[in-house]
Write a protein that binds this DNA or RNA. Structure first.
Ligand code: MN
Ligand code: MN
Ligand code: ZN
Ligand code: ZN
Lengths: 138, 138
DNA sequence: GTAGTTATTGCAAGTCGTTGCAATTGCATC
DNA sequence: GATGCAATTGCAACGACTTGCAATAACTAC
């Protein structure tokens, strides 16, 4: 919470509120979600401030940003245990995916291309088992 | 080119032009690129028609859509050989990535989760070898 | 505590992309 | 080749997010 100041950023009431809200949120929130909750306590905060703060927290790797295809980007506290999401194009269901599933790819990219891939919080689109079964596709 | 009609869509001059432009383009183009070239030949086509046509071609798996972080989405003819892109967050360089690198992940997702992942044209962000070397990070 | 410096904010305007709707047009049928 | 109907288009309005800028306020030094 004080970490912002340690890295040379100013600790404003807006930022404190936004950070607290992100911490209190279970799972993903949109910028609009955050803005709604911020203005309950501090009515004059502009949504652009929320967006700018989220960008800052993302840059500092304190939050992850992901587009799960819902029309608005989602944010989440950067967890200890990295995870990702599978998103079904048919039914819209999302299920979490352990980072171990994609870690081999990260290793391969580093080994073969010298590329240090972030892959902090991926959304992988496709068709879930349930929908594939329904479609009799094999 | 006639494939649209075969699948039950109407073949309009706008669509024919847009498809021809995508075919003639080497590599990625933005909707604005396409619109600019369309209006050179057919001045009254609206950009919303370009967007709608690109969405349609994407749905039919004739083009791939990807956000490489450049502020506008890029489109590309769906190639025979699938590929992806590595994008360096520091220098902005992008390099193509053979699908073989991520195919094992696709297989693992199907095997362990029954999930048929698309992963048609991924953008993977991170730090390229050159930038990592410059930064003396190991 | 005051003053000065500069980051941050709120606001308004801008950008990229999507969408509702009435007018147009492709295409099937006669 | 005329008629009818639904798909498609152009246009304008909208939605999510970003950005320029002047006013404000956090921090630093006294
Ligand atoms: Mn998540
Ligand atoms: Mn490509
Ligand atoms: Zn599903
Ligand atoms: Zn680089």
């Amino acid at each position: 919470m004080e970490s912002l100041r340690e890295v040379g950023y100013r600790l404003t009431p807006q930022r404190m509120l936004i950070i607290a809200i992100i911490h209190d949120s279970k799972g993903h929130v949109t910028a609009e979600d955050v803005h709604t909750r911020v203005t309950e306590q501090y009515p004059f905060v502009d949504i652009s401030t929320v967006y700018r703060t989220l960008q800052l927290l993302k840059k500092l790797h304190l939050v992850n940003e992901t587009d799960l295809g819902g029309g608005r980007v989602e944010y989440e506290l950067a967890q200890e245990a990295r995870h990702h999401h599978l998103v079904c194009r048919r039914c819209g269901a999302t299920s979490p995916l352990d980072d171990e599933m994609i870690d081999p790819l990260r290793a391969r990219l580093l080994e073969k291309h010298g590329f240090r891939a972030d892959m902090e919080h991926f959304a992988i689109f496709g068709v879930c088992r349930t929908c594939a079964d329904k479609g009799q596709k094999g």
